[in-house]
Design a protein around this nucleic acid. Structure first.
Lengths: 229, 229
DNA sequence: ATTAAAGAAACCAATAATATACCAAAATAC
DNA sequence: GTATTTTGGTATATTATTGGTTTCTTTAAT
């Protein structure tokens, strides 16, 4: 017979499963776990095993076990109020952009339609005429990077970019912008944007990514110089 | 007596349900909730339990309770577009991981402390013993990548990674996992994880990033093969 | 055969959920 | 303006659950 042997589950198996469910948000912060008896039934293990698994999770700090009450999640899987973005520091954001944008360039080369490239060029043209207007330039810069993401046709990436860009709205950032966006810096940014755009036009994914990295490196440098002041 | 016993609901259950109704827009910004007594009746729970659930939602900042007046929604579901994650397709998610994780490796090399590397090794060891248990392996895999991000010490990156990982909790993904995670694939993943970890141990940022790219390429391939079936 | 780990069952004391009643402020009706 | 109703806040007694503990049996690995 093809009867499947239900293999005996060890406490570490149970722990791994529950850990995963905490990380993925099945159980949220401050939620109470199902009672041990129910959990044992669901996991097809004995209560003692579940108990041992929960004790391990407690040592890891993921849950707190309260006598005669229940086991409570002490891990924030998603922060719905998004205070992280409010408190994100400029250099942390730069790291995120470093991770994100070079690959966006590669994807853009693969997916951008002619009309997309045309629109990017238009934004680029506007930017080059705003060497002396830091605020206008910054807004167009945001537009440029957002449009770049949009050309990938990936709504998930677009959503993430939107979240990252929302940081720029806060106080620390408007100040930082005034410190860094001097005309000569804007001029350099324009050159780099133009180079990135050209690499995309000519369908060179690695070149586009490389030039984006250089661009971000320049931005990072002017940031560190500004914060050193 | 075939009467079905209505399971007693805990405050976490009530909170989860109300949270869902706020997120989906059943109750919109500034709406007044039904009074506690009515809510208790609808939820088939006692007023005390509903009360405790509402208090938790208040701590989360989702609602505001006003004495002698009512409980009001303080959350704008339009500004929070979570649905994208529910509908994110596997290949779109792979692109996001391609964008992020190689650079995460570089940052990990720069910032990981010895204790971090030790913890990563422990997760790795567990994974290598789960060649025949796809569910356990997948959960450990999530842990591995989450821990990797954590070593960068950048909460913004951690938040983004968590958003990306939260997709894995949904239905389409658990099915996809069953299709792709065969023992030989798991074996290959283990080899690649080990190589990534080694590169981090030996403080080689570019090597670590490159190996992560290879790992993701393998994952992408097994995805496309699975969706071709 | 020996040993360590998991399963099963029973009991305890503390806690959570229920049910009910009452209060005071606010909203509503008249 | 006044009376009535509605609302969240509070208190209390009762019942159902829950984690903690012990004891013993079963299973798997060596």
């Amino acid at each position: 017979m093809g009867a499947i042997m239900e293999k005996r589950k060890s406490f570490s198996d149970i722990a791994a499963q529950l850990r995963g469910e905490i990380y993925t948000g099945t159980y949220k912060m401050n939620d109470r776990f199902p009672p041990e008896r129910i959990l044992a039934e669901k996991m097809k293990a004995s209560r003692g095993t579940v108990r041992k698994a929960l004790e391990q999770l407690q040592e890891e700090g993921l849950v707190g076990i309260v006598n005669n009450s229940g086991t409570y999640v002490r891990f924030n899987s998603r922060n719905f109020r998004q205070p992280i973005f409010e408190s994100a520091r400029p250099l942390e954001l730069m790291d995120a952009r470093f991770a994100f944008e070079p690959h966006i360039c590669r994807l853009s080369v693969l997916n951008a339609r002619p009309i997309d490239i045309l629109e990017l060029s238009e934004i680029q043209d506007s930017m080059e005429s705003k060497v002396n207007d830091a605020v206008a330039f910054a807004n167009l810069d945001t537009q440029f990077h957002m449009k770049l993401v949009a050309t990938t046709g990936n709504p998930l990436l677009e959503w993430i970019a939107m979240q990252i860009n929302s940081v720029r709205g806060n106080q620390a950032w408007t100040q930082m912008r005034k410190l860094t966006l001097e005309p000569n810096i804007i001029y350099e940014y324009n050159l780099q944007h133009r180079q990135i755009l050209d690499a995309i036009k000519f369908r060179e994914p690695e070149l586009a990514a490389e030039r984006m990295k250089e661009h971000l490196e320049t931005a990072r440098l002017s940031l560190t110089r500004a914060s050193a002041t």
